[in-house]
Design a protein around this nucleic acid. Structure first.
Length: 293
DNA sequence: ATCTGTCCCTGGACGC
DNA sequence: TGCGTCCAGGGACAGA
């Protein structure tokens, strides 16, 4: 299975690849499969409201993709852990037992079990599909002017963050710096891989109390976070798997990972054994020699 | 206000 | 071979 572990760089790569396939095309119909927490907005509502709309712009904030529609509403997508957005020819069928809820004259339109959303366009061109094996992803449609807590509470996007913002947010925080980096209301977009990688490059131990970081620490850390993410975007993100996705190219940043998923292996900088601990219920990897600060 | 633990969900790895 | 168990992860939520 293709696991892209979507953090900011992977979502940004997805945004860039999807932009042309989504923007400026009038929606004909929306097909949904299944229900549950994946659909924050009820599937029926999506099927009713999206037809005849056009996505004008595709933005990103942290790990959220936000499609701005021509009536002022917003289609908000989160890839969760295993979410994949891709295009596919309308005629392409998938194996599996997923049953789509579609107009009677179009039945059946089988997709694979894990494809929950399919957007069809009036021009008859490729559809945009949202597949998510573990259903940690989210789909919601916000009416014009409607706000949503999960977007409102996001901090500044990590790609444009400044050190002073992390410094301000970290004051009087006793939580580990790694845990603070994963907090999306501080800096938006950092996930487990890039938090570990950035802390390693910065020489900061993940368990360090956030409140004990100096202003200079924060400035250096944010600079490194931005650099790591820029590099990853350039390389197409991180793909953890040997599976080749038929719809798209895999990223190659996984070859640059210094500590993530390298427990017991030697640090490439000093040769010490990479250690793995658990912080905030998340696995955390670091070099005990290089990361002493 | 902040922090911790639990839950959601599935496929892959692993042990017997 | 096949079954059971554990684990990974982002984020919402409840409770401390």
């Amino acid at each position: 299975m293709d696991r892209r572990l979507p953090e900011l760089p992977e979502v940004e790569v997805t945004r860039r690849q999807l932009r042309a396939a989504l923007c400026g095309r009038r929606i004909r119909a929306v097909h949904t499969a299944g229900a549950g927490q994946f659909f924050v907005t009820r599937p029926r509502t999506l099927r009713q409201k999206l037809p005849d709309r056009t996505v004008l712009r595709l933005r990103r904030h942290g790990k959220y993709l936000i499609g701005e529609l021509d009536d002022g509403s917003r289609l908000v997508l989160h890839l969760g852990m295993t979410g994949q957005l891709f295009t596919a020819d309308p005629g392409v069928r998938y194996r599996g037992r997923g049953e789509l809820q579609v107009a009677p004259e179009q039945r059946p339109r089988p997709l694979d079990v894990h494809t929950h959303l399919c957007i069809e366009f009036r021009d008859g061109g490729p559809e945009v599909r949202f597949r998510d094996v573990r259903k940690f992803g989210r789909v919601l449609l916000l009416d014009a002017g409607q706000t949503d807590a999960r977007l409102d509470k996001l901090g500044v996007d990590a790609l444009s963050a400044r050190g002073k913002q992390l410094f301000a947010a970290s004051r009087k925080r006793r939580t580990a710096v790694k845990t603070l980096l994963l907090n999306q209301s501080v800096l938006a977009g950092i996930g487990n891989i890039y938090a570990d990688e950035a802390l390693h490059q910065c020489g900061i131990r993940p368990t360090r109390a956030a409140g004990r970081l100096s202003r200079a620490d924060c400035e250096q850390l944010v600079e490194i976070i931005r650099a790591v993410m820029r590099d990853s975007i350039r390389l197409g993100g991180t793909t953890v798997s040997d599976f080749i996705n038929p719809e798209g190219r895999d990223g190659s940043f996984q070859r640059c990972l210094q500590v993530y998923a390298r427990e017991g292996e030697p640090c490439w900088t000093c040769g010490a054994e990479i250690r793995r601990i658990v912080l905030g219920q998340r696995s955390t990897h670091f070099c005990p020699h290089c990361q002493r600060r």
